[in-house]
Write a protein that binds this DNA or RNA. Structure first.
Length: 232
DNA sequence: GCGACAG
DNA sequence: ATCTTGTCGC
């Protein structure tokens, strides 16, 4: 798949903030146009985890049949982060290599499940929003740990949720995907609404805490890192 | 000012 | 994110 929008890549934090401010107004939290048939999970693994701009990274995308959760296509890409780890500017680190992996896909996923936040972000423009705007494809964020907001503990059962608010604004939902596990944080990326995003994540996580999309993408990019680091 | 801070 | 052994539980 190809990008809908060109993107000059920032070299400094100030430039990155300007990019976010420019693209932020384009985000649309609206219901999915139709039930998704293909869903994709994306993830990035690091070779040495330093948090610096020259970290080597590997990205993976796995496309699944939404009904069976069976993988139908996968793609990877390796490269350099190109930006230091700064909470709130996380996307500038992972998006370049993720986009290169997406460009190697021959199928067109209906939704992209991102590892991280969407609107649950200090400037309401997390990685999932950013990728949605650049691709024009519906996106949502699934985060293992929250970045901000207040909420009450959801019930103990699978499917229990609680709204996450930041300064009174509804920015995400915590969702318990399995009975007895720590909830994940789900937020809108682009072209989907919070109800739809929550429903989709729950359906994609029938057995484990994280959706199958993320689990498979995680494994794939770790394998890619291993292949780069030590084929021995 | 201090601490916290997606991956 | 990544560095890492054993251990509790289904």
């Amino acid at each position: 798949m190809r990008l809908q929008r060109e993107h000059p890549w920032p070299a400094t934090e100030a430039e990155a903030l300007a990019v976010q401010a420019e693209l932020r107004p384009l985000v649309r939290a609206v219901p999915l146009p139709r039930p998704p048939r293909l869903i994709a999970g994306l993830d990035v693994a690091y070779v040495g985890a330093h948090g610096s701009a020259d970290d080597e990274v590997a990205a993976a995308v796995v496309v699944l049949d939404a009904a069976t959760l069976e993988p139908v296509e996968r793609a990877t890409a390796v490269g350099t982060a190109g930006f230091p780890y700064v909470p709130g500017l996380f996307a500038f680190r992972e998006l370049p290599v993720l986009i290169r992996a997406l460009e190697r896909l021959t199928t067109a996923p209906d939704v992209l499940l991102c590892d991280g936040q969407g609107l649950a972000h200090p400037r309401r423009f997390g990685l999932a929003c950013h990728l949605g705007v650049l691709t024009g494809v519906p996106t949502l964020g699934v985060a293992k740990t929250p970045l901000l907001g207040e909420w009450t503990e959801p019930g103990p059962e699978r499917g229990a949720t609680a709204d996450v608010r930041d300064s009174g604004e509804l920015v995400a939902r915590v969702l318990r995907t399995q009975t007895g596990v720590k909830p994940v944080t789900v937020s809108v990326g682009h072209l989907i609404d919070l109800d739809g995003a929550t429903e989709l994540v729950l359906a994609a996580a029938p057995r484990y805490r994280l959706p199958e999309t993320i689990r498979l993408a995680d494994r794939l990019c770790r394998d890619a890192v291993a292949a780069v680091a030590g084929p021995a």
